[in-house]
Design a protein around this nucleic acid. Sequence first.
DNA 1: CCTTGACCTTCCCTTGACTGGAAGGTCCAT
DNA 2: ATGGACCTTCCAGTCAAGGGAAGGTCAAGG
Lengths: 141, 141
Amino acid sequence: MNIGDVARRSGLPAKTIRYYEDIGLIKPHRSANGYRCFEEADLHKLAFLGRARALGFSIEDCRLLMALYEDESRASADVKQLAQEHLGKIEAKIADLQAMRDTLTELVQCCAGDNRPDCPILKDLSGELCGGAGAQGREGE
Amino acid sequence: MNIGDVARRSGLPAKTIRYYEDIGLIKPHRSANGYRCFEEADLHKLAFLGRARALGFSIEDCRLLMALYEDESRASADVKQLAQEHLGKIEAKIADLQAMRDTLTELVQCCAGDNRPDCPILKDLSGELCGGAGAQGREGE
DNA sequence: CCTTGACCTTCCCTTGACTGGAAGGTCCAT
DNA sequence: ATGGACCTTCCAGTCAAGGGAAGGTCAAGG
């Protein structure tokens, strides 16, 4: 298989596949003409990588996950720990984003959104406290 | 004020402040010795930037927000629109992360986490369907 | 006067995970 | 032989900084 075929079948862009080879995640053979020559096993790995990346695992996590996958004597505890740590990071990000969302939602609701210059969003950003309904809870930043 | 003082007072690292000057967000004067020389107005701008960044606005959004802030004849509708667009992106990110979290949570729960190699997390990543409780809903990716 | 240490300057490299594009080689069908 | 689709490598850019080197400046202490 050439790179275009694996790209279509794995759903990953050819550029990404080359990049994954660059950083040592896959090691496709080469044909006589220098073209990368992928086997089913490579395709399988790429699909694995694609799914792990879609779950938000970093490239380094993917490397570890692949190593665990290929290690027949792995302990599932190691996989689980990796996944749980990643889950923790995701939950932290969600919490951060939710805090932003809550503050922004408040500010947007406060803002008249008309042609006058007075704007609680800018007031908040400039550090003046919004007298009204208020988007507080960030004084101590 | 020298950069160290503004760094302490704004909570931004000196590196970040220099970067913000580099990209034209602030334009501090220079003392005779070449040191940046910040006024209260610069500090105010940096605090504004810090808060906008903490709300997840991109640098380019921050640039627009600052311009609006300094434009006395702005329409609050413009600010509101910017904030609403940003809010939409944040909500999309939250939804993405929540989907990851849900799948990962399922998989982690499925995994025994002992010293045996059998692991539903790796099974899922490798494309095999998990026979048990199942973390489905991603077949069509 | 000299040194020490804290502070400041610019410059360039690195991050993560790609993406875009240029310049050029290969393959296959017409 | 020519066109177009495919492949190759290499270099630069993204975003928002962070790290660190090499060197200038300043104030205090000996």
